[in-house]
């Protein structure tokens, strides 16, 4: 085994801002986000691709960033939970989670928010079954999930309304959908 992984130069757009970095090839996307960019909203839970706390959007699709090498984001776009609120205004999905008390400790919440982004960009009117399937890869050990389902169902309505009005939240969902 070599002593060090090769250095690789990558260019990645994270939450709309372009970053150029020299990284070790073995660096995981979640560590690039948290350690190199200091965006610590993306959490490491199980670190084994199970819990989904590290979920981010890579080129518009949800991925577990603990199971993606940062080099695979080269030339791509990443959206983390920090990319949702605009000008101090919560994204409608975040507001719905807040209003429905869809979190207790909050550790899993960034991942659930990003999984919800992925779902609503592709399916603006999800059924309860669609919602259950969409967050099957995100574990919450506090809430028992009911409030999360309620929040996502409500978020769907809010994002659709925002999309119709062309306001914040609608645009974010539409840009993810465009991929």
């Amino acid at each position: 085994m070599p002593e060090r992984s090769d250095g690789v130069s990558i260019s990645v757009t994270v939450n709309g801002r372009r970053h150029q970095a020299e990284i070790e090839a073995r660096l995981l996307l979640v560590d690039f986000i948290r350690e190199n960019l200091n965006l610590t909203g993306t959490h490491i839970g199980c670190d084994t691709s199970f819990c989904g706390a590290c979920t981010v959007l890579l080129n518009g699709s949800s991925v577990k960033s603990c199971t993606v090498l940062a080099v695979h984001a080269a030339g791509g776009e990443v959206t983390t939970v920090e990319g949702l609120a605009k000008d101090g205004e919560l994204h409608p999905i975040q507001q719905a989670f807040k209003d429905h008390y869809a979190l207790q400790c909050g550790y899993c919440t960034p991942g659930l928010l990003m999984s919800t982004c992925h779902l609503l960009a592709r399916n603006p009117n999800p059924t309860e079954k669609d919602i259950r399937k969409a967050i099957a890869g995100n574990c919450c050990r506090c809430t028992g999930y009911q409030n999360i389902y309620d929040a996502i169902a409500d978020a769907a309505a809010r994002v659709s309304a925002a999309r119709a009005a062309g306001t914040h939240g609608g645009r974010a969902a539409a840009s993810a959908e465009a991929r």
Partner: peptide, 11 residues
């Protein structure tokens, strides 16, 4: 956790 070091080749 991290993968161990490896040499990286992009095909």
């Amino acid at each position: 956790m991290h993968p161990g070091p490896f040499r990286y080749h992009r095909a």
